[in-house]
Design a protein around this nucleic acid. Sequence first.
DNA 1: ATTTTTTGCTCAAATGTTTGCACTGTTATG
DNA 2: CATAACAGTGCAAACATTTGAGCAAAAAAT
Lengths: 339, 339
Amino acid sequence: MSKNRTIIDIATALGISPSTVSRALNDHPRISNETKEKVKKLVFELDFTLNPMASSLRSNKTQTIGMIVPGISYYFHATVLTVVQNLLWKEGYQVIICQSNDSPEVEKELVNTLYASRVVGVIAATTLRTTDFSHYDILTRNQIPLVFYDRVPVNYYPAQIVKGDDYKGGFEATEHLIQLGCKSIAHISGPLTCNLYKDRYAGYIDALKKYKIPYRQDIVFFHELSMDNAVESIKKIFKMETKPDGIFTANDTSAIGALMVARELGIEVPKEFKIVGYSNDPRSSIISPGITTIDQHPDLIGQQLAITILDLIRGAETNLITEPIITPITLTIRESSKA
Amino acid sequence: MSKNRTIIDIATALGISPSTVSRALNDHPRISNETKEKVKKLVFELDFTLNPMASSLRSNKTQTIGMIVPGISYYFHATVLTVVQNLLWKEGYQVIICQSNDSPEVEKELVNTLYASRVVGVIAATTLRTTDFSHYDILTRNQIPLVFYDRVPVNYYPAQIVKGDDYKGGFEATEHLIQLGCKSIAHISGPLTCNLYKDRYAGYIDALKKYKIPYRQDIVFFHELSMDNAVESIKKIFKMETKPDGIFTANDTSAIGALMVARELGIEVPKEFKIVGYSNDPRSSIISPGITTIDQHPDLIGQQLAITILDLIRGAETNLITEPIITPITLTIRESSKA
DNA sequence: ATTTTTTGCTCAAATGTTTGCACTGTTATG
DNA sequence: CATAACAGTGCAAACATTTGAGCAAAAAAT
């Protein structure tokens, strides 16, 4: 029965005052090294740990960082989470992970609950349809560091941003198809309220422009990027008189959908139709033909997030929000876009 | 600038004492409904929330549940996590997710840290190689509800267990292959220190026995279930004089490995060689031919976990650990095992 | 030798709740 | 009609820590 020890037990055992113990444990400069050693030794021997509630109550600071994601099980977010959680845990922070399930209302509620539980920082990827970010104000107003990643506010919002280079991703994907000889490239995009799809779309447009390929409105689609939606759009494409000879989809699920429809209709990939997806989902390397896609390096994003939030928390006095931090992407070429 | 309101502010505003406010908010029976209404109304209007640290400090109880998983990004665990986190959040609990990265040492440390942060319950899937569970004693000794899932103690340990029916999964997978006419069935298993592989292996054995198929030690492998290991083992199999005509692998990664090697060597699946995996990883439905596999219904397991831990926490006085709760599995047939 | 600064520590207050006990007034019991 | 039971509330202690103020002794500066 491990009795709950307190700082006072340590103090009396050593014949010093509780305040000294507290300061010793927090490496206060006014405590002699000798005393610090003594305290830390006993604390170690007794396996003592400070009561985090009492600490937090008194200091009004926790060791908790909140993280808001649309869902834990999305490949991209799961990978980011893994890295962030591991790194922050090592620094002594607890990460509390919350899922918005892509609902703006839930997102709002999550922010409030995180604030109520006195988190010292928040990392968030917003909902696809979040356009109003005022529910995050409660954090900024109280100087709680806030970092958005992946899905970030489109207009200015006073918080740090970390994101993959979606514009470049869109551009390179499209350029790649063009360089392979595609003359007409379809695009499946998500809702343009979300920066991800807006930027990837912009890259697509600019690549077309650069190579003087006319933009065809009838082969560009905007809808939630589900398998069903993708299949529907692709079927439309293949019914056209002037069929496109390639497609760039803003996620891999849609790319897989495209591949399946093509297979079903007996259209040869990549010979007759080339496909490039986005995210480097594990499925895209497993399917055959393998799907060319843009790798967003979620582990790099995770690392960057951990570093960024720690910086903000530790240097909280100075407000050091910088320009958005853009992490690199890599075009990963597979069979779906071979010449 | 939302000042930090306290229970005392509410009390003075209403001309009552802080204790009454506290009791009203906690639905104490001795407070009149009239007073409760008054308090709750003002609390709602002011957007007031109790300071969780102060509550926890005083009551020595948190609203936090710890969850230990080998890694967030494994498909199975990600799905379980998603469900558990959503359900527990709705009940007002915060879930703090920890990753052991499959290291027993880290696992040990995690348990201690969770205990130190006064979680009210722990849900854990252990490391593949955890054989000593004594680091969990600190929880049981202090009556902190503990539920193991998926990877659970092999010998008796005084904690609730929730797991898929691995024995049945192994049995059905093997029986399925036999019924399709396989005469010699290989098996790739993980370390037998882990209940998962032990049970699936036992199912495999018993299915062979039932149909009087001799056990061949040379086509059964035990090693970590990575792609590389799988590829290596499969290559051995295909070099044998008397090649097996089917394989049951204890995870889907190995099944995918088997499929790839077969493809490389020009062995036709399922005609010459049939494959059954385990877990229903998304990749297994995407690859072609699709891989037959055992679906563990991670969402059901998640639901069951949430229910179980809540029961234990709420009825904490009575110790109601029951027999292991076994959740159903489903054989999901795809092309890799067609006749 | 005196004053100032620094070092190393203690005291006590403060953090925001919860909760055992006590108290008042009302209603039921004998 | 006295007394017990009970509903409804308030008081103050307790939870374990942090931290500003204070104080004595030692070290440094004058």
